Simulated assay, not measured.
Amino acid sequence: MSHQQMLDTMVSRFDADAAGDLDAVFQYQLEGGDPFYVTIVDGTCTLNAGEHDDPNATLSLDDETFEELLSGETDGMQAFMAGKLMVTGDMMLATRLTALFPVS
C-alpha cells in the first residue's frame, strides 16, 4: 500500500463523534516518507503535507507498523511497547487515536 493509500484509509475512518470538541494536531513521521500531520478541530479531520509548527503529539514509525495499525493487526499500545512507535508530546492524547480512527 502506498503512503497516500494508507493516509486516505486512515482519514476515511475518522469518527467525528469520538472527536467531540477535540482540538489537536498529530504529526506523523513515516520512515522513508514525507512528513504529514492531521488536524482535528470542530469534529473535522484534515490531512496536511509537511511539518506543523507546534503539534500536540508526534508519532514516528515505519511503513510496516503503520499498515499493521491501519489493518488492526496491532494496536498503538502494542506498537509503542514493542518500540515500533515513538511518541513525543502529549502521550495521553495519542492514546485516543484508536477511537478517533477505528478499524472497520
Rank of each mutant, 00 (worst) to 15 (best):
Q4N: 12
Q5G: 06
D8A: 14
M10V: 11
M10P: 00
M10Q: 10
V11S: 01
V11E: 01
V11H: 02
V11A: 10
S12K: 05
S12R: 02
R13C: 07
R13V: 05
F14N: 09
F14Y: 06
D15A: 09
D15I: 02
A16G: 06
A16L: 07
A16N: 04
A16I: 07
D17S: 14
D17T: 15
D17I: 12
A19R: 00
A19Q: 01
D21A: 14
L22E: 01
A24M: 06
V25I: 11
Q27V: 06
Q27S: 03
Q27W: 10
Q29H: 12
L30P: 09
G32F: 08
D34V: 10
D34M: 09
P35L: 15
P35N: 14
P35Q: 13
P35Y: 10
V38Q: 02
T39S: 13
T39H: 12
V41W: 10
D42F: 06
L47T: 04
N48C: 07
A49K: 14
G50A: 07
G50P: 01
H52T: 05
D53S: 11
N56W: 10
N56P: 08
N56G: 07
N56S: 13
A57H: 03
T58F: 02
L59W: 06
D62S: 02
D63E: 14
D63K: 08
E64I: 10
E64Q: 14
T65R: 00
F66N: 05
L69W: 05
L70W: 03
L70M: 11
E73S: 13
Q78V: 15
Q78D: 11
A79W: 02
F80L: 13
F80K: 00
M81I: 12
A82T: 08
A82S: 13
K84Y: 09
K84P: 01
M86F: 11
V87S: 04
V87H: 01
V87T: 06
D90W: 07
M91Q: 13
T95D: 03
R96G: 00
L97C: 09
L97F: 08
L97G: 01
L97E: 09
L97Q: 10
T98F: 10
T98I: 13
T98D: 14
L100H: 03
L100A: 06
P102V: 02
V103G: 10
